[in-house]
Design a protein around this nucleic acid. Structure first.
Lengths: 216, 216
DNA sequence: TGTACATCAGTGAACGCGCGTTCACTGATGTAC
DNA sequence: TGTACATCAGTGAACGCGCGTTCACTGATGTAC
């Protein structure tokens, strides 16, 4: 009895795949989404793309190379989530100072929302040291061409421009704000707040963002 | 040619090991110290204890069981580091309110110091969701019998008692403080601050603790 | 004080697993003439 | 327009690795008589 015909070949009409790099990246993203960085397994990505394991090596030099690509995509998704939240702010018409404050809060809110709804991607994005600061890798940015770190920075710049934040307090402020928000995200995702209710989390998020605004 | 006599048997005089549970736990801690949670490998722990791999199953029901024990020990180390920092505060004689503030800062400082000097243990301690809040597991506590979360809580209580923190702001305050400090630790360990200098980190830590104090 | 025996912490060998990666290959595609 | 050929994205088989875990065992120790 012969082995069943491989589904692979019936799904693919041609010997060539079509767009294997993209298919592998998307499979990798899906794996990260579901299980974080450790779930990004090269063989599984090729399985999902309907291709032999070693085919991946035509497009990625190693497992780590694929993982880095997935990470960049995760950062890009995060940037998009933050941008979406900022866009919501811009529509309201208020004073420039209040709008600047709202923008900073939106960065924090977008960050937290992403962490809670796309936990796997979030964890993947920060699974490995990265020099985000001066990073110009376009794969990590949102529509604006800015990565998450840069989005935070420009929100803080706006705060300075509108006189809300004294200029001398600006340097390094992104690290303070980021620390607070990132820490909360972590406590919710895999820390003691993992069993907190949505309401509690929302209340805590608001208070945290207030703390940052007040204490910056 | 026969295989060389196993060092194992020459090192151990008796058939019994002596204190294998302790040896395995300590080996596990050492592994975590060097490489974080993923480095806690059951077979490697038995190798270091000079024992066959399966011997571990006399004392730990599984790999996960060993890892949990290592995690508890890591949390306990963190508690000790915080307690040591608090002890330094108590020696100075100042007003009660100022002392309470200093205690809270000490909790933050101890936490950050531990994160930076014992990175592997720190990452292991927080590698898995845990309900630290009402946790009475003595393996996770320091000399005071309190785990890190409870140490933070009692520092905040002190702040309320001395009138520094309004009582109505007390509930949930540990999460805000913890978020900020934990987030900074993370950014330094595996985030964009991983290449920052010691001076920069110290300055940032001070500012962050100020922010918490002011914004709480 | 000596002997029989139960206990149980260790041994040694083996398992299946899935991983990342390498090798020599094949065959569809696009291009040069 | 047809043919020869180079390219290179895929195949198929195999590798070594180290892991966690299970099995039947052995032999030192402590205890009961």
């Amino acid at each position: 009895m012969k082995a069943a015909p491989k589904k692979r070949s019936s799904l693919r009409k041609t010997f060539r795949h079509g767009n294997l790099p993209k298919a592998l990246l998307e499979a990798g993203i899906e794996l990260a989404r579901g299980g974080g960085p450790n779930a990004v397994v090269l063989r599984e990505a090729t399985r999902r793309a309907g291709v032999a394991p070693n085919a991946a090596y035509r497009h990625f030099s190693s497992h780590g190379d694929l993982l880095q690509a997935v990470r960049a995509a995760a950062l890009s998704s995060l940037a998009l989530a933050i941008e979406a939240e900022i866009a919501g702010v811009r529509r309201r018409k208020v004073s420039r100072a209040e709008s600047a404050r709202a923008t900073l809060r939106a960065v924090g809110t977008g960050y937290l929302k992403f962490a809670l709804t796309e936990t796997g991607l979030f964890r993947t994005a920060f699974s490995v040291p990265d020099q985000v600061e001066g990073d110009v890798d376009a794969a990590k940015t949102g529509k604006s061409g800015l990565n998450p770190f840069q989005l935070l920075g420009s929100a803080l710049d706006l705060l300075v421009d509108t006189g809300v934040l004294p200029r001398e307090r600006r340097p390094g402020a992104e690290y303070l704000a980021w620390s607070a928000v990132h820490g909360l995200a972590f406590l919710i995702i895999e820390g003691p707040l993992s069993s907190a209710s949505d309401g509690e989390i929302r209340a805590l998020s608001d208070r945290l963002l207030q703390m940052v605004e007040k204490g910056l």
